[in-house]
Design a protein around this nucleic acid. Structure first.
Lengths: 198, 198
DNA sequence: TATCTTCGTCACCGGCCGGTGACATGGACG
DNA sequence: CGTCCATGTCACCGGCCGGTGACGAAGATA
């Protein structure tokens, strides 16, 4: 049924993305993906060389992380740009199931797939830092990478905890008002820290 | 061999802790634990009613999170106490493999075990917040839970990423000097934010 | 028409998983 | 002594996993 290499390839990639978003990274096996795609699992080996190849293809097909230029261009000050970048990271993790699962995956396992996924995000983040640095020419004693790492780690983690398997973190943001509190704290922190560290 | 219920129970609990610390939460199965303990897996069902019961016992036997009183008593100011509490959380996650794996587990799965583990940590954190509030009588418009959630989430996440499967986060702290940068950023943030939010 | 390649199917493998039922053993207690 | 029960052992189950070898069916090419 439905012969034709390219269509089948595409169907498998789509199915992998659907499965990752719906059932999480722990469900990503050749058997499950093949069934979801209505294809035969042998084709995963033939077309992608195995699971890592397939998931690499999937990752390359999705733009998952904040684009450096978009963030920088839309903000008038360093504080605002940093704030927006950090919040955008949290928002992506919260609203993009695939992004969320990839972060979890990277935390839980270390293999070819997660290494490549990390590298992709890393590259984009470095470009963001570089863009901020050149656009706003901040004083050298502001440790921008450290500040950015601290805040985006915070938002990512809170977003991870808030979604699907939802435990607590004293204030684990669940309602909109919870998230506003976190965002207000982050804003105050950014505003103050950039000044204080100078 | 080695008859006697209590000794065997203890041996199984010890083996579970060892396995969790060494091989991570993904390795925690009845077969693996039984082999590690040199016992028979049937006993896990007989003595603990199954895996959740065994791991609940294990968790209750380990003090894993910062004690509220210790942190509060050793700090002269609110800034200092908050800074110490947050750093201690990060340090624990970094140095206690069991704590690390429990956090990962809570992120990745939602079941009886992780629910109970979350509850334990949650209770301790609430006590910390309450102790800070009463000890230093901070103004009501400082959103202490939000600030604490933001910062401890940051340190926990960075510590999780820095250990065993070690990908990147632009600045993923690996060396001591990396961690000093993060700590300096956190200190500045705490100092500034408490003032700014007043 | 005959041949050859590509695409897809099917059946099977060994291995590990969680879980259970049947049975040996040894000690306490009558 | 005999009984009983907690303790520990062993073999086995069904199910899912990743992975592979053999085969059929469509279509291009000669």
């Amino acid at each position: 049924m439905a012969r034709g290499s390219t269509e089948t390839r595409e169907r498998i990639v789509q199915a992998a993305g659907r499965l990752l978003a719906r059932d999480g990274y722990r469900a990503m096996g050749v058997n499950a993906i093949a069934e979801e795609a209505g294809a035969n699992k042998v084709l995963i080996y033939r077309y992608f060389g195995g699971l890592p190849g397939l998931l690499g293809t999937l990752a390359r097909a999705h733009p998952l992380w904040p684009r450096a230029d978009a963030v920088v261009d839309s903000a008038p000050t360093l504080e605002r740009a940093l704030y927006l970048a950090v919040l955008e990271t949290g928002r992506l993790v919260r609203e993009q199931p695939i992004a969320r699962e990839i972060l979890l995956w990277e935390l839980a396992e270390r293999n070819e797939v997660t290494a490549e996924l990390s590298a992709v995000r890393e590259r984009e983040t470095e470009r963001l830092i570089e863009a901020l640095r050149s656009r706003f020419s901040l004083p050298p004693f502001v440790d921008l990478p450290a500040l950015h790492a601290l805040l985006s780690a915070a938002l990512s983690y809170l977003a991870l905890r808030a979604s699907d398997p939802a435990p607590t973190f004293t204030l684990t943001p669940s309602t909109d008002s919870d998230w506003r509190r976190i965002e207000r704290a982050a804003a105050a922190v950014v505003r103050a820290a950039v000044g204080v560290m100078e």
